[in-house]
């Protein structure tokens, strides 16, 4: 909290336009990092679609045949379950990205190595 210097992520991207692109020598990690990010994203978005548009809209009538604690299941997904799932999806994303950033050394750190 005590960091007063400009955080490395602030302002415009650093003026290192000369660095080689993602496929340049020594930059293989970039493609790897990005692929893992995209894979995580796609998995989470599939779940996002399944609970809201799948369970809450496309298959809501079939699921409504099942009633739990008074809730027809499709109705429950549409008005409750999808929202809980959305929260869990963002939680999983934030935690997994913390790990991925650390693994590839791109997490935001203060000078003493603590999280910025």
């Amino acid at each position: 909290m005590a960091d007063t210097h400009e955080s490395p992520s602030g302002g415009a991207p650093p003026p290192d336009a000369g660095t080689p692109g993602p496929d340049g020598p020594g930059n293989g990690w970039r493609t790897e990092y990005w692929k893992k990010n995209l894979r995580l994203m796609v998995v989470l978005l599939v779940v996002w679609f399944a609970v809201s548009f799948g369970a809450g809209i496309l298959f809501v009538e079939q699921l409504n045949q099942v009633v739990i604690a008074g809730f027809p299941l499709g109705f429950w997904f549409a008005q409750q379950g999808s929202i809980y799932t959305f929260i869990v999806l963002i939680l999983v994303y934030a935690l997994r990205m913390d790990r991925l950033d650390d693994e590839y050394g791109v997490s935001e750190r203060n000078d003493d190595g603590s999280r910025a």
């Binding site: 490395p8 992520s9 991207p13 650093p14 336009a17 660095t19 692109g21 993602p22 990690w29 970039r30 990092y33 990005w34 990010n37 913390d98 790990r99 950033d101 650390d102 693994e103 590839y104 050394g105 791109v106 997490s107 935001e108 750190r109 190595g113 999280r115 910025a116």
Partner: peptide, 24 residues
């Protein structure tokens, strides 16, 4: 332009890559 594509590349990574990896 090449610079624009470089900028798009750069926003993918939260910070500059550090020499040694710090564990959480």
């Amino acid at each position: 332009a090449h610079e624009v594509q470089e900028m798009v590349e750069n926003i993918r990574y939260p910070a500059e890559r550090r020499a040694e990896v710090t564990s959480a």
